[in-house]
Design a protein around this nucleic acid. Sequence first.
DNA 1: ATGGTTGTACGACAA
Length: 253
Amino acid sequence: MKIVSWNVNSLNVRLPHVLDYLNAHKPDLLALQETKQTDDKFPKDDLEAAGYNVVFMGQKTYNGVAIISPHPIEDVSTDIPNLDDPQKRVIAATVNGVRIIDVYIPNGQEVGSEKYAYKMKWLTALQAYVHDELTKHDKLVLLGDYNIAPADIDIHDPSRWEGSILCSDRERAHFQGLLDLGLRDSLRELHPDEPMFSWWDYRANAFRRKWGVRIDHLLVTPNIKVIDGGIHTEERAKERPSDHAPAWIDIDS
DNA sequence: ATGGTTGTACGACAA
């Protein structure tokens, strides 16, 4: 079962890329973040015509998440219970017996800012939510744009980024908190020593200069056997790309 | 790498 996470930074702009990607890779599940459109604008018909089922929850201009699969998408839920948050950042569903939680974790802007405090509060609520979901579901994948680089190997130049947003100690502690629930960082376990990046700033020609950061992740329960995985960096090299590349795994199912 | 680009929407903010 091929599972992919991709922050598309506007599905309106990126729909052609997404349709090409589906055609090229035929994933069993594609989880999107930052669709940036209200539900009435979601390209349901185009994706269904391509042979996919879709569930989605968006808002105007910001955020927005979606799950796309050729298989039935069951038991859909949105948001984090017990977190009063108008921002559309979470959608969950069961596909092929695997519970999928698709998250767009807040960016946080700057350490110490109001948005950073929101990120911390959000991550605390996420951990409680995932803890609860793990008691209900045998197999679970928590995937999405985490806006956290878990370790120095996940940053092109760790010394320049030290302590800054995406890699502060408190953000990394929250990431570790998710691992402490029993989840595993599938891509890092597959490639223990390989720098892998999933996001490159649009600015300063960051992609060409290989200034990347790994902030998109697929965490899995230990009973999921991960066969292969990586990041489809070539998507970032295309014309008018998202600033994120798809992160993918293939699991035994 | 402390400037710079992109998306939304048309000024300014978020990333």
